[in-house]
Write a protein that binds this DNA or RNA. Structure first.
Length: 635
RNA sequence: GCUCACGUAGCUCAGUCGGUAGAGCGUAUCCUUGGUAAGGAUAAGGUCACCGGUUCAAUCCCGGUCGUGAGCUCCA
């Protein structure tokens, strides 16, 4: 019997039945030595996998997502293997590959510390050097249970117990180490070229705080030392750009024990903030938005009506005023609902786009707080759009355009995801279906690529999320467009239709920046603290060379201020090099160096923080260029 | 919230096997007038996070509190 095998390049060939992928691999690897695994009809398989029927076979290397996963999954087994050699009593949890690496959760009899990682890493390298073959063993449930119970691997027994009846139970063996695992794996440990253990942290068994906490060892693996180096360098770069560090150095904001999760913005941070909100207001007015401001603290009755009292109480802050319960707002919507409801609406008034840059407070778990990224008090660039059902499409399209405008100004790439009706959804199914297909239509009509997350929508409506990608390739969810079928019901919102009867409007809840605080953090890291001129807290530093040019420098500074620029003059008794260094470290975009030569010819010597010395020109010429850079928000 | 680690000058960090502490940067003053990333000297600056305990003696050891950091979905 022979079977037909189709390769990724379209070539077909016949082989005897039972030919393993390894046999084919031997031919292939001659062409590409980096191949490490195989997809048979799209499924990841071991190289030893025998082919029993006509199949499509694709060999993959580390550069495919599946390849990287298999590679790192094998690395995690090597980690567990090394741990078992050094700590025979340790019990294994799970050890999957993750983005950029892998981990293994382990229950150590005596907790280990980060100092123990180098030794484990050394043992891993030994196992790699030994080039142990990795062998798949399939077994019955009873055999597996006996095996792991003999080894006292209680967590593995728990996993086996939870495996469905019809699944093939498999283990992977290398040397004297055997682990319950679906696979697939590399064919031997020697294929792992570069590893590094990167961290140690606690993690609950199966992610539940009711379960015991295991120790999670994080690591990463690459097929070459260079790739590992690059990856580690990327992490270093991210550390350098950490907004908490830059925020302090550039005096943008500070955090204090007195207000955990409540950041303090300093003058420099406020300048960036104001530029961001100024830009936001200009574009929102242009797009037909009104702006409102609603109170921080509102009566309990409102939160009962909105449902927050029942469903969000754990995250809210409370106070009492005149014997009555009040809550600090965790969201802006109820306020906006009251504004809408404060007068009657005709269908002719809609859509009504009501925006609010609103401060909300949410009690987040203390362990989740992180700089400006995750706080307990933040500012949303919120807007609620009240509209007729048949306006949904146009409104959503308008918001998508607005998002694109903002994100491209910052130089962010972004991805879009559409989340649809979840199990416990509120509202009529027909309305959901209609809304979902409308959202999809808007995206398709504009030729926008998007990913669908089935069942991931909010219980009150489907949504479109925007995930920004920063310059280090990390992604952050910022913008969101959420249809809300709930709020109009809860607040009994109405408009008078053409027929003279009351109807229910649809509400869209949307943010572009998301949280101002988080956007600031994002921008700080995206730009590495070197803000484009329009955002830079100080746009120009005037630097006199000697005391003789102090007066000239001060005049230049005045003139630039009068032109509306943010400018500092450095009249300290220091050398130019020193002053330049300082302006450079503070990431000031432009330095104007003025000495005797410039005074004499009435010029300024321009230095750019990246491009260095640009030569001398007149102040007028410089102002023209600078104005253009600010107005066009050039990155 | 939970686990582990950490908390020493404005910042980055050293140190004390228990006898109340030190560097660099920054700051102030003086000298230096210097042309594209750090000129020199001197000085000031610390309840060693906070509260208890052990001890003749605690910044150090122990306990607690607060704060900070890495994690806590990625399913054998």
């Amino acid at each position: 019997m022979t079977i037909k095998v189709k390769f990724e390049n379209g070539r077909e060939a016949e082989y005897p039945q039972g030919t393993t992928c390894m046999d084919l691999y031997r031919e292939k690897v001659a062409e590409n030595r980096d191949l490490i695994a195989v997809l048979v009809d799209g499924r990841e398989c071991d190289l030893t996998h025998p082919l029993s029927e006509n199949s499509e076979v694709v060999f993959i290397d580390f550069n495919s997502p599946e390849g990287a996963d298999i590679y790192r999954h094998s690395a995690s087994h090597v980690l567990a293997h090394a741990v078992k050699r050094l700590y025979p009593n340790a019990k294994l949890g799970i050890g999957p590959a993750i983005e950029n690496g892998f981990y293994y959760d382990i229950d150590f009899k005596e907790p280990i510390s980060a100092d123990d990682l180098p030794e484990i890493e050394k043992e891993m390298k030994k196992i790699i050097k030994e080039r142990k073959p990795i062998i798949r063993r399939e077994m019955s449930r009873a055999e597996a249970e006996k095996l792991f119970s003999d080894m006292n691997e209680t967590y593995k027994l728990e996993l086996i117990a939870d495996l469905p009846d019809d699944v093939v139970i498999s283990c992977y063996e290398q040397d004297d180490f055997i682990d319950l695992c679906a696979g697939p794996h590399l064919s031997h440990t020697g294929l792992i070229k570069a590893i590094k253990l990167t961290g140690l942290a606690g993690a609950y068994w199966r992610g539940s705080e009711k379960n015991p906490m295991l120790q999670r060892i994080y690591g990463t693996a690459f097929p070459s030392k260079e790739m590992l180096q690059d990856h580690l360098q990327m992490i270093e770069e991210a550390k350098k750009r950490d907004h908490r560090k830059l925020g302090r150095e550039l005096e943008l904001f500070s955090l204090h024990e007195e207000g955990p999760g409540f950041p303090f913005l300093h003058n420099n941070g406020m300048i960036v903030w104001q530029e961001l909100t100024d830009f936001w207001r200009v574009e929102h007015r242009r797009a037909g938005y009104e702006e409102i401001k609603t109170p921080l603290i509102l009566n309990r009755s409102l939160w009962e009506q909105s449902g927050h009292w029942d469903h969000y109480q754990d995250n809210m802050y409370f106070t009492k005023i005149d014997e009555q319960d009040f809550a600090v707002k965790p969201m802006n919507c109820p306020g906006a609902m009251l504004v809408y409801r404060s007068r009657m609406h005709s269908y002719r008034d809609l859509p009504r786009r009501i925006a609010e840059i609103g401060v909300v407070h949410r009690h987040e778990l203390s362990g989740t707080l992180h700089g400006l990224m995750r706080v307990r008090s933040f500012t949303q660039d919120d807007a609620h759009i009240f509209m007729l059902p048949d306006q949904i499409e146009d409104e959503v399209a308008g918001i998508i355009d607005l998002m694109d405008l903002f994100y491209s100004v910052f130089g962010f790439e972004y991805r879009i995801e559409l989340s649809t009706r979840p199990e416990k959804a509120m509202g009529a199914v027909e309305l959901w279906d209609k809304a979902e297909s409308l959202l999809e239509k808007v995206l398709v009509d504009r030729g926008i690529e998007f990913k669908v997350n089935e069942g991931d929508g909010a219980f009150y409506g489907p949504k479109i999320d925007f995930h920004l990608q920063d310059c280090l390739g990390r992604s952050w969810q910022c913008g969101t467009i959420q249809l809300d079928f709930q709020m109009p019901e809860k607040f009994d919102l109405t408009y008078i239709g053409e027929d003279g009867a009351k109807h229910r409007p649809v509400v869209i809840h949307r943010v572009v920046y998301g949280s101002m605080e988080r956007l600031m953090a994002l921008l700080i890291e995206h730009y590495g603290g070197a803000f484009p001129v329009w955002l830079a807290p100080v746009q120009v530093a005037v630097i006199p060379v000697t005391g003789r040019s102090h007066e000239y420098a001060a005049n230049i500074c005045e003139e630039l201020k009068n032109e509306g620029f943010r400018v500092d003059v450095d009249l300290r008794n220091e050398k130019v090099g020193y002053k330049i260094r300082e302006a450079q470290v503070k990431k000031v975009p432009y330095m104007l160096i003025v000495g005797d030569r410039e005074v004499e010819n009435n010029l300024v010597a321009v230095r750019h923080r990246q491009d260095g010395d640009l030569g001398a020109e007149t102040l007028t010429d410089f102002v023209v260029k600078l104005k253009k850079e600010v107005d066009q928000k050039i990155i």
